[in-house]
Amino acid sequence: MRQNSNIFERNVPGTTALLQKAVVGIAGCGGLGSNAAVALVRAGVGRLILADFDQVELSNLNRQYYFRDDAGRDKVDALAGHLRAINPDIKLDLHRRKLTPRDIPEIFAPAGLLIEAFDRAESKHWLIESWCRAFPRRHLICASGVSGKGATSAIKIRSSGYIHLVGDEQTDISMGLCSARVAIAANMQANIAIDILTTQKDG
């Protein structure tokens, strides 16, 4: 039995209707993307466009929003199941493929804003360039420097125009990754998105 009217009754007043009509793109469904997606669905975002080429491995479970039974499944499919378990009415566009710069304008055309949740710095770089070229007046929320442990207050937000970047901009994957630190950054990305979608006309 669906009781969707109850999901959002504790939301911040005035935000639910705006979030329900919002479309958010998430490029990458790993530690950043999976955790950000969960936060956005819980907040009431109505539609997500998810893209990832990868399958769930046990080594992902230290930080990504997956469970043992997901191992071997495409991440977008596993994540879609978890998001629908929170809100069965969430609209999801699922893209099981490795994104390239030329995919961005088409796949994310309906998205009012994008969460960059890639793993590799080179990918973050081309995504920022291709998004800004395709959609120069749509917000892009990136993350850089989410590795290692502790250093909570080193995780910052810097913005320039429509580009926002969360992280310490230094720590690298070679240091290892910790659940809490990655999820903090992912939730900061989601928090920025929610703020934009509920306060700005052009979000």
Partner: peptide
């Protein structure tokens, strides 16, 4: 001018 540093990991 704003310079963002991009680091691996996510």
């Amino acid at each position: 001018v704003c310079v963002f540093h991009l680091a691996h990991g996510g």
